[in-house]
Design a protein around this nucleic acid. Sequence first.
DNA 1: GTCTATAACACGATAGAC
DNA 2: GTCTATCGTGTTATAGAC
Lengths: 223, 223
Amino acid sequence: MSAVAVPTKSEQTRDLIAKTALRLFRERGYEATTMRAIATEAGVSVGNAYYYFGSKEELIQLYYEHSQEDHAEACEGILDGEREFRARLLGVLRARIDTLQPYKEFAGKFFKYAAEPSSPLSPFSSESAPVRDAAIAVYREVVEGSTLKTDAEIRADLPELLWLYSMGVVLYWVYDSSPDAAKTYRLVERTVPIIDRLVGMARLPGMRGVVREALSTYRDLRK
Amino acid sequence: MSAVAVPTKSEQTRDLIAKTALRLFRERGYEATTMRAIATEAGVSVGNAYYYFGSKEELIQLYYEHSQEDHAEACEGILDGEREFRARLLGVLRARIDTLQPYKEFAGKFFKYAAEPSSPLSPFSSESAPVRDAAIAVYREVVEGSTLKTDAEIRADLPELLWLYSMGVVLYWVYDSSPDAAKTYRLVERTVPIIDRLVGMARLPGMRGVVREALSTYRDLRK
DNA sequence: GTCTATAACACGATAGAC
DNA sequence: GTCTATCGTGTTATAGAC
């Protein structure tokens, strides 16, 4: 009769395996962590680990979920008091790097698994839809909670476009070897004002044409 | 005393392994092709294959080289008679997809190996420098052989920027599952005119500021 | 349905003999 | 340079216990 989620034995085991895997990945890296080690550390059999997770790669999806929750939480405080579009976007992207940073060591290592088009780990896969939608929702909040004035057509697609931009930032971050990701922070600090200006300029007579053409191309070619 | 390259035994063996691997990749796909199969088909031992190539992944670099030569060759005829920037760029990108297309099946499969930042297969790695430079040279030819008029600052960086754009097109192509890559062709057909317009607009008074800012950001943040 | 224990398989990679 | 034998891995299979 209680509405409180009481974890079943099964859920507990699954969660135990998940948490152990994530911890070992962070401690030793993805490749150096064997399925045998995950099972041993979690106190279960290898067969049991495979009972809950179909493959080692599948354990990576857990990190996405964890990372997305982390980011969304960090954004709450940032979006609460700020109404200016540029500041909101900058804050959200800084928080994106902040929350990613502790995992830098192994994020690059398993990044490649996300790059395979047919992989469920691809950010565009249907399996990633929940995480992706949650991420886009953050950028929708960035736009809708702001005082931004721009072309109505752009405004509709802006959340998704900003998410795409954030994926580009993450891509840069993965390749960024500067200390404390200094260059990635600089990337957002320098590109956010440019985006802000471009979005503002979109209403100008001379720009309307290119903008409409670019948007219609985008709509046509996204899956 | 002869200037003609007489292949040594070693070079012959290496070449034999390389050609066999590439053939099997195309026939069966990357993952389905085992090192044992490559060795057997080439008539050498597994150990010998590893004597010439440090890993299975290393064999992929061969495909890059082959693919780049293929593209550069296809571009010659295209760039010969055409002086207009837009048409030159469009032709080169169409040729890029044309030459990639036969390998569609397995290109997606090993694409992920290129995505790992620390991998020699990354398009930004030092090991990829020769192929990368050859690719950028094609886009330099696109610009310099054209009648394009634009901001001098942009012009200097344009070849590299166009290469980056072409990498984006390839990225889209990898994920494109439409028949005969129809959507990727549409992508270049619709984005090339946009790029052409933007590059032309860069000289306009209202645009100069954003363009300079964007370019200086790019220069600062490229490795 | 959940879980253990153990063995077996195919693969990429390596060691060491010749 | 080239080989054979072997290792460690992800994954699957088997045979059961609660």
